[in-house]
Simulated scan of single mutants.
Amino acid sequence: MIRSIDTLSRNFDILQKKQENISANVANINTAGYKAQEIIQSTLQSKQMANHLGGPLLNQKNDIGSFTFGNQIDEMYRSFDQGGLKGTASATDVALQGNGFFTVAGTDGQTYYTRNGNFTVNAAGELVTQEGHRVLGIDANGQSTFIPAGGTDFSVDSNGNVNETGLQLMLTEFGNPEALTSRGNTLYTGQGGTASMGTTTVFQHSLEISNVNTADEITNLMLVGREFEANQKALNAADETLRKAANEIGKV
């Protein structure tokens, strides 16, 4: 009985994490460049169960079959599938189609990667994210620098070349983007990035919308709700069994 309650407790923990994950996806449906995250779970290996109630004296080992003690979370998987593109009126809104990521210099000195091109301009006239991280570019010598975006004539072509500056957006690709570490606010860190070589197209006056599938998230939320209900019923049944057992023992 205690084993059953432990199993139910583990299931409740997993369902709680799944519900939190669904909530995060739904909350970011309108966040540019957001990539949906999914929880991958598996069933724990079954264990052979036995008691020692066999034989005429009820003292011999008696195999009673196998039992599975619930599920476990294997990984948090983030889908980097392409999101749709949405046109905007802002010249500093930039979208990517392809495998590349914008490369930005964090205010904390860390280099980040993002698909969120909802940029703005800081007091120094530099292109920055909404959090103030400066967008990086490369010059003719391949050196990294910050992108100037002051004034009213900022423009960027489909290859990421910034008009009349001799600079190009620094776009970085990863062979396995799923291995990137999320740092929140659509920012990621990771190793092994390489310069995007013609596989990513840049669109000005556009944003890549979230790749969250609303219908799938609603379905997942309903399934989690039903699992919660089923586990709650099982827990209530276990509690009732323990209560009756305690009362009967107390009468002996």
Rank of each mutant, 00 (worst) to 15 (best):
Y113I: 00
R183D: 04
G225C: 07
F146V: 05
T120C: 00
A27G: 12
G117Y: 01
A91V: 10
T92E: 10
G132E: 12
N211V: 01
K86Q: 14
I218L: 14
S182H: 07
E208I: 02
S155Q: 04
A36F: 03
L180T: 00
E131P: 00
G117P: 01
G150L: 03
S46Q: 13
G250E: 02
T241L: 12
D81F: 03
I29N: 08
N116L: 01
G175F: 03
Q168L: 06
N231E: 14
D63V: 13
A215L: 15
L180W: 01
L169W: 01
L207Q: 01
G184F: 01
R78I: 11
T7P: 04
G55V: 11
L169I: 12
E227L: 11
Q232Y: 13
T92L: 07
E229D: 14
T199E: 14
N141T: 09
G184H: 08
D139R: 12
Q168F: 05
H52Q: 14
N176E: 10
V135F: 09
A32C: 01
Y34H: 06
R3S: 12
S158T: 06
G125S: 00
T199L: 04
F203E: 04
A105P: 02
G190K: 10
G190L: 10
T129L: 12
G166E: 02
N141F: 06
N185T: 03
Q232I: 10
A32V: 02
N11M: 13
T165P: 06
T43D: 11
Y113K: 05
L57D: 12
I138R: 12
G175N: 15
L221G: 10
T189G: 02
F69E: 13
K18Q: 15
S90T: 05
T111K: 03
G150R: 03
M222P: 07
G142H: 09
K17P: 05
R226E: 14
G33Y: 11
Q191A: 13
L85D: 02
N59V: 07
L223C: 10
T7E: 09
G250Q: 03
T186E: 14
E38Y: 10
P177L: 00
A195V: 10
G54Q: 09
S9W: 07
N185E: 14
T152P: 02
Q204T: 00
M76F: 14
K35V: 01
K251V: 02
G83V: 05
